[in-house]
């Protein structure tokens, strides 16, 4: 399994985003997904995106461009179409992007937002040009193991917050009582979203503009053998404001067999901005964490 760096889930502004990718250029990660999947207002300008892409390529990384998961307007489609006209591989996060890739005879990465739950659906996307699927984190290990004969690369979320809802409304704007139309990108003030706790004080969700993330961070560092068995070829790490290079190093060391998962998870807990979870892999509630010493390992 190889590590990839997923797109930044949050809005950090241009300066911080540049600084972040300069740091990433110095890490060993081979593939970097760039771009905005959540809200079109946060999208970097094409010039800026290309500048970052070239900088990363210069550092030996392969760049894949992510696309909006809930594109609605013609303006958003035009934005997406411009990305598809570039020479980079595209991560298609809604069916319209697949249509654009089909039209251009281009292969693509099928992103994690397409609602792919079974092998025939995956085979269908493969026939249209999908060379990799980023699997829905909701799928259990048992589901991942189905359809391994379909010749696509399989990327799974290794570490980061889970997307638990996408919306036309902006939850950050709602929380701050500002209008979405004139939001002035207030989500930029919350570089890891706005965590929500239940009324009895347990972290649950995380408002991130028009997306809701999990408050806990999904983490599979103790499940790498099981994931390999389930056909995973790539492991996606999601950027966080601080400590991303350290997270990448921990995963590399476990992948290389230099450190065991149980030790690594202890170190990850110190780096993560939230508790860890991975229950979905076991067909359990997504918010649970099941470790090697944990209950009912599947």
């Amino acid at each position: 399994m190889k590590l990839t760096l997923g797109p930044i889930p949050y809005y950090w502004g241009v300066k911080e985003t540049l600084r972040f990718y300069e740091t990433i250029a110095g890490t060993e990660v081979e593939e970097v997904y760039l771009g905005e999947a959540v809200c079109s207002k946060r999208q970097l300008s094409l010039e800026r995106l290309l500048e970052i892409a070239r900088m990363l390529e210069g550092a030996g990384k392969r760049v894949i461009l992510s696309t909006l998961a809930l594109a609605i307007t013609e303006e958003e489609l035009a934005l997406t179409e411009r990305l598809c006209d570039l020479s980079y591989t595209i991560e298609a996060n809604q069916m319209g992007v697949i249509a654009l890739c089909e039209e251009r005879g281009r292969t693509f990465v099928a992103g994690p937002y397409l609602g792919i739950y079974n092998p025939p659906s995956l085979a269908f996307l493969h026939a249209l040009g999908a060379r990799r699927i980023v699997l829905l984190p909701e799928l259990s290990g048992e589901v991942l193991r189905a359809g391994l004969e379909i010749p696509v690369e399989r990327e799974v979320l290794g570490y980061g917050p889970l997307t638990v809802a996408l919306s036309g409304r902006c939850y950050t704007a709602l929380a701050l009582e500002v209008s979405k139309a004139r939001c002035a990108l207030v989500c930029g003030d919350y570089p890891e979203g706005m965590p929500l706790e239940t009324l009895d004080g347990n972290p649950l969700y995380r408002l991130n503009g028009t997306e809701i993330l999990s408050a806990p961070y999904h983490c599979v560092i103790e499940l790498l053998d099981a994931l390999r068995d389930a056909g995973a070829t790539h492991l996606r790490i999601l950027p966080q404001r601080e400590g991303t290079p350290e997270v990448l190093v921990l995963f590399s060391r476990v992948l290389a067999g230099w450190m065991d998962g149980a030790e690594a998870v202890g170190r990850l807990r110190a780096l993560a901005p939230a508790p860890l979870c991975n229950g979905w892999f076991f067909g359990k509630p997504g918010l649970q964490y099941v470790g090697t010493r944990g209950e009912g390992k599947a």
Partner: peptide, 21 residues
């Protein structure tokens, strides 16, 4: 509700059972 249908895992995250499936 405001989450887009088919792209909502709020309940599944808590129960482990997806509305989609």
């Amino acid at each position: 509700s405001s989450p887009a249908e088919g792209r909502c895992f709020l309940a599944s995250f808590i129960t482990g059972e997806s509305i989609n499936t």
